[in-house]
Simulated scan of single mutants.
Amino acid sequence: MSHAKKTGADLIVAGGYGHSRLLEWILGGVTRELLATTSIPLLLSN
């Protein structure tokens, strides 16, 4: 997010997928974090 904001990005494109809840709780989930915190339009593809 900080890089996208610094460079003035208009769109973030990312691959979206999930892991088990336990693994995401331990390691964190980028997809979930992007969905929860982004203020820039987001395109996810699986």
Rank of each mutant, 00 (worst) to 15 (best):
residue 1 M to L: 11
residue 1 M to G: 10
residue 1 M to H: 09
residue 2 S to G: 01
residue 2 S to I: 01
residue 2 S to Q: 02
residue 2 S to W: 02
residue 3 H to F: 07
residue 3 H to E: 11
residue 3 H to W: 09
residue 5 K to T: 06
residue 5 K to C: 00
residue 6 K to W: 01
residue 6 K to A: 05
residue 6 K to D: 06
residue 6 K to N: 07
residue 7 T to L: 08
residue 7 T to W: 09
residue 7 T to V: 13
residue 7 T to A: 09
residue 8 G to T: 07
residue 8 G to V: 00
residue 8 G to P: 05
residue 8 G to S: 03
residue 8 G to A: 10
residue 8 G to C: 05
residue 9 A to K: 08
residue 9 A to I: 09
residue 10 D to S: 13
residue 10 D to A: 12
residue 11 L to V: 02
residue 11 L to N: 04
residue 11 L to P: 01
residue 11 L to D: 06
residue 12 I to Q: 04
residue 12 I to F: 02
residue 12 I to Y: 10
residue 12 I to R: 08
residue 12 I to N: 06
residue 13 V to L: 07
residue 13 V to R: 02
residue 14 A to D: 07
residue 14 A to Y: 00
residue 14 A to E: 02
residue 14 A to P: 02
residue 15 G to C: 06
residue 15 G to M: 03
residue 15 G to H: 08
residue 15 G to V: 12
residue 16 G to H: 03
residue 16 G to L: 00
residue 17 Y to M: 06
residue 17 Y to T: 00
residue 18 G to L: 00
residue 18 G to S: 10
residue 19 H to R: 15
residue 19 H to T: 11
residue 19 H to Y: 13
residue 20 S to R: 07
residue 21 R to V: 13
residue 21 R to H: 11
residue 21 R to N: 09
residue 21 R to Q: 12
residue 22 L to S: 14
residue 22 L to V: 15
residue 22 L to W: 12
residue 22 L to P: 11
residue 23 L to S: 15
residue 24 E to T: 05
residue 24 E to W: 08
residue 24 E to F: 04
residue 24 E to R: 06
residue 24 E to K: 10
residue 25 W to V: 14
residue 25 W to G: 15
residue 25 W to D: 14
residue 26 I to E: 11
residue 26 I to A: 14
residue 27 L to E: 10
residue 27 L to M: 15
residue 27 L to G: 06
residue 28 G to K: 13
residue 28 G to I: 10
residue 28 G to D: 10
residue 28 G to Q: 08
residue 29 G to A: 10
residue 29 G to R: 03
residue 29 G to C: 12
residue 29 G to P: 03
residue 30 V to S: 05
residue 30 V to C: 08
residue 31 T to R: 03
residue 31 T to E: 01
residue 31 T to Y: 02
residue 31 T to G: 03
residue 31 T to C: 11
residue 32 R to G: 10
residue 32 R to V: 10
residue 32 R to W: 08
residue 32 R to L: 07
residue 32 R to Q: 13
residue 33 E to G: 09
residue 33 E to F: 13
residue 33 E to C: 07
residue 33 E to M: 11
residue 33 E to Y: 13
residue 33 E to Q: 12
residue 34 L to E: 01
residue 34 L to G: 01
residue 34 L to Q: 08
residue 35 L to M: 08
residue 35 L to S: 03
residue 35 L to W: 00
residue 36 A to G: 06
residue 36 A to S: 12
residue 36 A to N: 14
residue 37 T to R: 14
residue 37 T to N: 12
residue 37 T to L: 07
residue 38 T to Y: 00
residue 38 T to C: 04
residue 38 T to Q: 03
residue 38 T to I: 07
residue 39 S to I: 08
residue 39 S to H: 12
residue 40 I to W: 05
residue 41 P to D: 09
residue 41 P to W: 04
residue 41 P to F: 06
residue 42 L to D: 03
residue 43 L to V: 11
residue 43 L to T: 13
residue 43 L to E: 10
residue 43 L to Y: 13
residue 43 L to A: 15
residue 44 L to E: 07
residue 44 L to D: 03
residue 44 L to A: 09
residue 44 L to H: 05
residue 46 N to V: 07
residue 46 N to H: 13
residue 46 N to L: 13
